[in-house]
Design a protein around this nucleic acid. Structure first.
Length: 180
DNA sequence: GCCAACGTTGGC
DNA sequence: GCCAACGTTGGC
């Protein structure tokens, strides 16, 4: 059994949306990157667990756990010319893009922000933390998975005086259209 | 909003 | 097959 990290913008589909979905399950569609596709098509297995990560969020953070309930199969949203994820090169006979089904397992009692993850030695090796990392589907180790779950069930770290910075004023997030 | 980093495209 | 231009991602 493998462990994964799945990234999505909450404006697009948040973990709350997944929790509210029928059977608390959805297909993880719209991945249009070959490296991520290979993971989805070749390596995801039912029973695998994944960290749900909110990107472009305030703050960006690990927010929960999902379980893979169906292995990779062709992403039919690539065949919808009206959809955001249309790709004319993808056909039913020669599929290019794949998706998996995921089911909600847990919404963390405390989210683990990216900023906090960067400070945890056990998480140093994660692809997510690398500069310029844009993969939306990536493997993580069991140790990394367990550490994130443990952090999410522990109190927030108390910032030291030195680490405390005045928070710059933030504008409320503008309404965003669904990501393409 | 800015912009660095990245993947993809297309001219040659 | 190179690589510059382009579009996108995503933290800040």
């Amino acid at each position: 059994m493998r462990h994964w990290l799945l990234k999505n913008e909450p404006e697009c589909f948040s973990i709350a949306d997944l929790e509210a979905a029928p059977q608390r399950t959805t297909f993880w569609d719209g991945v249009r990157n070959y490296q991520a596709r290979n993971f989805l098509r070749d390596d995801f297995q039912p029973g695998d667990l994944a960290i749900y990560y909110h990107s472009n969020a305030e703050p960006s953070a690990a927010v929960g756990v999902v379980k893979i309930v169906r292995a990779g199969y062709p992403d039919h949203t690539a065949q919808n010319p009206k959809g955001d994820h249309y790709d004319p090169k993808h056909t039913a006979l020669n599929p290019i893009w794949y998706m998996v089904d995921v089911r909600h397992v847990e919404t963390f009692p405390r989210i683990v922000p990216l900023e906090e993850m960067r400070k945890v030695p056990e998480l140093k090796g994660m692809e997510l933390l690398k500069t310029g990392s844009r993969l939306s589907v990536m493997p993580i180790t069991k140790a990394e998975f367990d550490k994130l779950v443990k952090l999410a069930h522990s109190p927030a770290p108390t910032p030291t005086a030195a680490a405390k910075k005045p928070q710059p004023k933030k504008k409320p997030a503008a309404a965003k259209s669904k990501r393409s």
